[in-house]
């Protein structure tokens, strides 16, 4: 064992801990990239949908939301084109499965709620619709906020847990909507009804996706110490 005489037990333990931590950080950075891109594209889509709805006076442009996952996937594919891929590991798998489950629930909910609301609007009175209609945006955004917080717990990033919680609080208590309705005159508010729920989605994408994503992306990676010849 002559080639290894200078490696102490403490140093060995340090190397193992360091590499495991680096592996977790690599997943964190990768997740951060996804959250950042998802947040940014969601914010842009919210702006485009809101503007298009306002200009055309129809809510038809909400259909653009269905293109969002494809846009995110294409942007990520382009970003990762020349990058070394982060290998699959336990932490990464947990994060990925958390998001897949959330998105599957969200997708099923959107489909069911859309069909349900259309049926209610056609066959029932407005009072029944108001009472029994399914609220799509708050539910979806709540699911996403939970996923953000869970990601924070898995990656041991407490700030991410708080971002998830904060975005959930902003959504559930409608603080942003109350602020808008107090600040703007009624005629503008009437026009803005075409924009809803883009403003909530925009805010969620900023607080729940883009900012935590940027934070994860920017978190410093420990510089690798050059390993010896052996």
């Amino acid at each position: 064992m002559e080639e290894n005489m200078d490696l102490t037990a403490e140093r060995s333990l340090e190397i193992i801990t360091e590499q495991l931590e680096k592996s977790r950080r690599a997943v964190s950075k990768d997740t951060g990239e996804w959250l950042f891109v998802s947040g940014l594209t969601t914010m842009m889509t919210a702006l485009v949908v809101a503007s298009a709805n306002l200009l055309s006076w129809t809510p038809l442009f909400h259909l653009l939301w269905f293109a969002l996952p494809v846009v995110i996937w294409l942007v990520m594919k382009r970003i990762n084109r020349n990058r070394v891929p982060v290998p699959e590991n336990f932490v990464g798998t947990l994060v990925r499965k958390t998001w897949y489950t959330t998105l599957a629930f969200a997708l099923v909910y959107v489909v069911i709620a859309t069909v349900w609301n259309i049926v209610l609007q056609h066959y029932e009175s407005p009072e029944v619709f108001l009472y029994a209609g399914m609220h799509i945006t708050p539910t979806i955004l709540t699911l996403l906020a939970v996923a953000v917080s869970m990601t924070g717990l898995i990656l041991k990033k407490s700030a991410l847990v708080w971002f998830g919680l904060l975005s959930f609080v902003i959504l559930r208590f409608g603080l942003f909507s109350v602020m808008i309705s107090r600040l703007l005159p009624p005629d503008v508010l009437g026009r803005l009804s075409l924009v809803r729920p883009c403003e909530l989605i925009f805010l969620f994408a900023l607080v729940g996706l883009m900012l935590p994503g940027w934070m994860l992306k920017a978190s410093p990676q420990p510089s690798p110490k050059g390993k010896g010849e052996n």
Binding site: E3, K227, G228, N230
Partner: peptide
Amino acid sequence: AELRLAVMS
């Protein structure tokens, strides 16, 4: 050995 241990970790 440092590097081999790092790779294995």
